[in-house]
Amino acid sequence: MGVKLDGRDPREFGLIFLKDHFHPHTPEMRSKTLTIPGRPGAWDFGSEWDVRTFNLPFAIIEYNKLEMQRKIRAFVAFLLDSYGRPRVVKLTFDYDLDKYYSVKLASQISPERFFFAEQFEVPLVAYDPYAKSAVSSDKIIMESDTPLMSDILWDTGLSERRIIAPTTFSIVNNGTVALPFSYVVEGSGTNVKLSANGKTYTLGTFSNKIYEINGDMYTVKVNGVTDLTTTSGDFIELFPGSNVISVSGSNLNLTISESLTYKYI
């Protein structure tokens, strides 16, 4: 059993990962309630996921105290940026190799020192509480050398679709939570619209342009320049499983592609 941080094994720093570690099945929960004096209970306005925390236990055995300190300092420096501040690293568990968490050091590392050994826990926090797929959707192919441990539907759809008439196509969200749809539209068309799951996004009429729609950041780039004035509508979401995307318009000569990073609880 082990972990990797930014693809590096802690053993590179002389550390031993201890098997008894804290890896919560869910993030922390943030409940939105309102308590009214004189009324039993509370109004429930729903709940949201909060941050996800980890405590990773390590030990180091080194008979040379100076060398021990050097190894530990090198490991701590690895978790920091050039200014000595905690930086975001990818945390991967060997029993969940096809997913990662974006984490950073959450608080002080306090060691227990012994004669020739030291033991300590590394507290990490993922402010984005979801696990993410290590492989983007356009890289999920039979020949991939990346281990895939999730239930993946291989029919994820073509990574590049040529659209010359109004049509529909399917996109599979292999994650367990809804995913903002980020995609690229390149070409020409009149009154072009994309619709799915009750939402429609309008690109309008254009010729020989490239639209980069980023559903995560709610941004649109037109020929590489941020521009929200030429498009309108609701950003599309992809629910877990198969999603049907409708493309409408006339004089269509488009290529539509996407590279999705699935998210998991």
Rank of each mutant, 00 (worst) to 15 (best):
V244M: 09
G187M: 09
N191T: 08
T190H: 09
T202C: 07
A106C: 03
T230C: 03
T176S: 13
L91H: 09
I164E: 15
G204K: 07
P57E: 07
G215Y: 02
F181Y: 15
K19A: 12
E28P: 02
S144M: 02
S170E: 15
Y262K: 04
S144G: 05
L56C: 11
V3R: 08
S159C: 07
N214K: 12
D20Q: 12
F78P: 03
V122D: 01
G7E: 09
N174Y: 05
I265G: 00
V51M: 10
K4F: 11
K99W: 00
M149H: 08
L194D: 05
T176V: 01
Y218K: 15
D20V: 01
N64K: 12
K104Q: 13
I256D: 03
V172R: 11
S82K: 15
K99F: 01
L66Y: 11
D138V: 06
F115K: 13
G189F: 03
L260F: 00
S259L: 02
N208T: 10
A134R: 14
D155V: 09
R161N: 10
L124V: 00
A74L: 07
S133H: 07
E258T: 10
V172G: 01
I213T: 08
V103T: 04
I210K: 15
K4D: 01
E160I: 12
R30D: 14
K139W: 02
V185C: 11
K19Y: 09
Y183M: 00
L15T: 01
D216N: 13
G204T: 08
V122W: 06
H23I: 12
L18V: 02
G241D: 10
I60P: 01
T230Y: 00
P86Y: 00
F120E: 08
L260Q: 13
G7T: 05
K193R: 10
V177G: 04
P40V: 06
F235A: 05
M1R: 10
R30H: 14
E112F: 03
N55H: 11
Y63N: 15
L194C: 01
T255I: 14
H23A: 09
T26G: 05
K263Y: 00
L79S: 07
V225K: 14
T168L: 06
V247G: 07
T92V: 15
A117Q: 05
V88R: 06
G187R: 07
E12V: 02
I213A: 09
T230G: 03
T261I: 12
R52V: 03
N208A: 13
S250K: 05
A134H: 03
A131F: 02
T26I: 08
